[in-house]
């Protein structure tokens, strides 16, 4: 239970109880920001389209009557596989790139103060740059640079997600409880052995949960990337919308829901077993 919470918890736990009594200020700040954002809304032609309400009723009506004819369903299942395969390929790049970078960024393998800080700062900087740019922006840039190719889609997912997975891994490795590590060191374990037998087992459940959560995000990203011309669920959705065929829009949307729920269930099963 609470798998995602638990995976994200260390991000927030660092700040707990450091600044008590400042919540009123925060509330005021957030309310002020929200009010400011309302004044930025400009709507010269009215907030809702003429015919917008009709469109909404049509879209909602089509929700209960999605196009499930065998021919269309078959195409949507094919699209779902395309989207899933781009997500999986992107995640392999993210893990292969993010895990070594994350270990470097945690600084647990380096001895010597200056060397350690140098490696940590370097790796963290690279990870921060990788994840600063959204995957779709990466995709647009890759397509502009390399032309339309499947590799552009895979890298567009893999690069920013490597940045995020690396950061989470680095934080979890650093936050491993110190007592088991100290006893490993006392029995003569090298820095690498402390990592392999102490830090990695202690952080595995959270990092795997987080990687699976990112896998779920990668499926959504892959669906959107299909607009860039790679095929998949997103392209099917936008084609249906172009034709105003809302019945055919909901089918690939439901396929996306099935993929996301499937990954979610799989992830929580793994986490339950890792924690017991």
């Amino acid at each position: 239970m609470g798998s995602l919470n638990a995976a994200l918890e260390p991000v927030s736990a660092r700040w707990r109880n450091r600044f008590p009594g400042s919540r009123a200020q925060l509330t005021l700040l957030l309310l002020a920001a929200f009010t400011w954002s309302f004044f930025s809304i400009e709507s010269p032609g009215g907030i809702i389209h003429t015919g917008g309400v009709d469109a909404l009723t049509e879209i909602a009506g089509a929700f209960v009557t999605p196009d499930l004819t065998p021919g269309y369903l078959g195409m949507v299942i094919g699209d779902a596989w395309t989207t899933l395969s781009f997500a999986v390929a992107g995640m392999t790049v993210a893990v292969l790139l993010g895990v070594p970078m994350g270990v470097l960024a945690s600084g647990v393998l380096q001895s010597g103060r200056f060397r350690r800080l140098g490696v940590m700062a370097g790796a963290r900087g690279v990870l921060a740059v990788l994840r600063a740019v959204h995957e779709i922006v990466w995709a647009i840039l890759f397509v502009a640079a390399f032309g339309l190719s499947p590799a552009a889609g895979v890298l567009a997912i893999g690069i920013p997600y490597a940045g995020i997975i690396g950061r989470i891994l680095a934080e979890r490795l650093q936050d491993a409880p110190p007592e088991p590590l100290a006893s490993l060191r006392a029995s003569g374990a090298s820095a690498f052995e402390v990592l392999a037998y102490g830090r990695i087992p202690a952080s595995a459940a959270d990092v795997i949960s987080y990687a699976f959560y990112r896998f779920e995000c990668a499926v959504r990203a892959a669906a959107v990337l299909s607009f860039v011309g790679l095929g998949g669920l997103g392209l099917r959705i936008s084609t249906a919308l172009d034709d105003l065929a809302f019945e055919r829009m909901w089918t690939p949307v439901f396929a996306l829901v099935v993929l996301v729920v499937g990954i979610d269930l799989w992830s929580s099963q793994i986490r339950r077993r890792l924690l017991r």
Binding site: E42, G52, R220, A221, V224, S238, L241, V257, V260
Partner: peptide, 25 residues
């Protein structure tokens, strides 16, 4: 929650602009 979460923001945007005028809102 699952339905709204499963669909990426950009796809929701494609649907939302059928109802609302394009813009910040």
């Amino acid at each position: 929650y699952v339905l709204t979460r499963s669909v990426p923001e950009l796809v929701w945007a494609l649907i939302v602009v059928f109802v609302f005028s394009p813009g910040i809102l």
